[in-house]
Design a binder for these strands. Structure first.
Length: 448
DNA sequence: ATCGGCTCGCGCAA
DNA sequence: TGCGCGAAGCCGAT
């Protein structure tokens, strides 16, 4: 079902006649469990019109490179095939997402899109809603509980958002039925030069190619569902106990797929609950409470990517008070980027990200805490951590990335024991890693 | 191995 | 206004 709270009109244009209903795909790059696509299909059927899907492929997306584009294109090739099978024309244009949507909006009776929370995504939608001659509807499909249903303000911590999410969780854990379009649109004459969604198409785009594709993760909904099935069958039962151990592989690996909208969090949640496993509670906590806390941050804090706005006042105060503390180790961006520090665990974490496009969740915390410790100011550390994460992680620039980096600097956390450099911001060290995990095994895992 | 203290502020009870 | 308690820890005491 599609709850009314998922649907938001972005302008107040009166109904117009048109040749088709347009689904502008941007954040939710999938055909399964996509409320926006289903909403668009039902509207098209109600209006007796065919449905067309448009996607704008730009090489000017901030901070992206061949690694991100390859993963995304693997998913889009699959989307293109799946839409064709359902009789829906998929149009990929070499244009910015907003201008691609507007290019086809002129002949649309209605434009439907999905929702993204980053500034650039909000801005694209604002421009489309303003310039489109037809009504524009946004359907929120990349969270389990719609962000504004959970809270109308920036939440302070997981403990404040948790009860607000759980209050609505059952209500939103509802399957989504798939509707078949009444009219086939694959043969529609649209007078556009569209791109073929394939890896070869990337050759024609100008982008940063210094960060290459990874073999550790293949993009696309099929691969996401395969990994999810494997996780549920072999790892979920021990998730609570073993998820933090970086020498093991007891995580779901859903991050990159969620980032590109290649799988739906609702779909994941329903499958995990269906499995009736002891790991359910811990997993839902990560997938829904903590993930949607990061959506809350990006939605309500316009400076989510800056030190001054994203890091809370108490943390900035205590870090500023320790600004002048001597640093035993100091590294610049280049040395950190090349995993060239005195700390073999940190280097391994950085190398894991460089080589696989993903860093183990627990090491991400350690990694960020050490950047804070080894850079001249907390502000510089914050910027370096964000920069490296966005560049090399497949899920860089996700709300989770911004929240995760900010957490290392005190966001969504509480003060702890006073110490040098950190003040009362939570500290982590290598002894903790060794105490809890087989770190030699982690080093072998990354280097092997 | 286990435990308390560290330290701040939100949110609820009163 | 008071009070309990918290996104993943550390450290020293027992």
């Amino acid at each position: 079902m599609i709850h009314a709270q998922r649907v938001m009109p972005l302008n107040d244009r009166p109904p117009v006649t048109g040749r088709y209903v347009l689904y502008w795909m941007q954040q939710a790059q999938r055909t399964e469990y996509n409320h926006a696509l289903e909403y668009a299909t039902r509207q098209a059927n109600a209006l007796g019109l065919p449905l067309v899907c448009v996607f704008g492929l730009t090489d000017e997306f901030p901070e992206t490179n061949l690694r991100h584009y390859t993963f995304m294109m693997q998913g889009l090739a699959e989307v293109s095939d799946a839409l064709a099978e359902r009789g829906i024309r998929f149009v990929m244009l070499r244009q910015a997402p907003d201008s691609a949507a507007l290019r086809l909006a002129s002949d649309a009776a209605l434009l439907v899109t999905d929702r993204g929370y980053l500034r650039v995504q909000v801005e694209w939608r604002r421009r489309v809603a303003e310039a489109a001659p037809c009504p524009v509807m946004q359907v929120e499909t990349d969270v389990v509980v719609p962000v504004e249903v959970v809270s109308d303000k920036e939440e302070y911590a997981a403990r404040t958002i948790r009860p607000r999410i759980h209050k609505h969780l059952l209500e939103y854990l509802k399957p989504l039925a798939q509707t078949k379009p009444m009219h086939d649109s694959t043969g529609l004459d649209l007078d556009v030069e569209d791109l073929r969604p394939s890896l070869a198409t990337l050759d024609g785009l100008s982008m940063d190619r210094t960060v290459g594709p990874v073999s550790a993760f293949t993009g696309g909904g099929a691969e996401a569902r395969r990994l999810l099935s494997e996780f549920i069958a072999e790892k979920l039962a021990d998730y609570d106990e073993l998820r933090n151990d970086p020498s093991l592989d007891f995580v779901s690996h859903m991050g990159p797929y969620l980032h590109f909208g290649q799988i739906s969090p609702l779909d994941i949640a329903l499958q995990v609950i269906e499995a009736d496993s002891p790991g359910e509670e811990a997993f839902i906590e990560e997938l829904v409470v903590r993930r949607e806390l990061s959506m809350n941050l990006v939605r309500y804090n316009p400076g989510y990517d800056t030190y001054e706005a994203a890091v809370p006042e108490w943390a900035r105060r205590t870090l500023a008070a320790h600004q002048a503390d001597p640093r035993e180790y100091l590294y610049d961006l280049e040395h950190l980027e090349q995993a060239d520090t005195h700390d073999e665990y940190w280097n391994a974490a950085q190398n894991e990200m460089l080589r696989t496009g993903k860093m183990h969740n627990y090491m991400r915390m350690y990694w960020g805490k050490k950047i804070l410790e080894w850079t001249p100011t907390a502000r510089e550390g914050f910027e370096i951590a964000l920069n490296l994460n966005n560049k090399y992680s497949l899920d860089g620039r996700d709300p989770n990335s911004f929240a995760g980096v900010a957490w290392c600097f005190g966001k969504h956390d509480r003060p702890w024991q006073q110490r040098d450099i950190f003040g009362t911001v939570r500290y982590m060290n290598a002894n903790g890693l060794r105490r809890k995990f087989d770190m030699d095994a982690y080093l072998r895992k990354v280097d092997g």
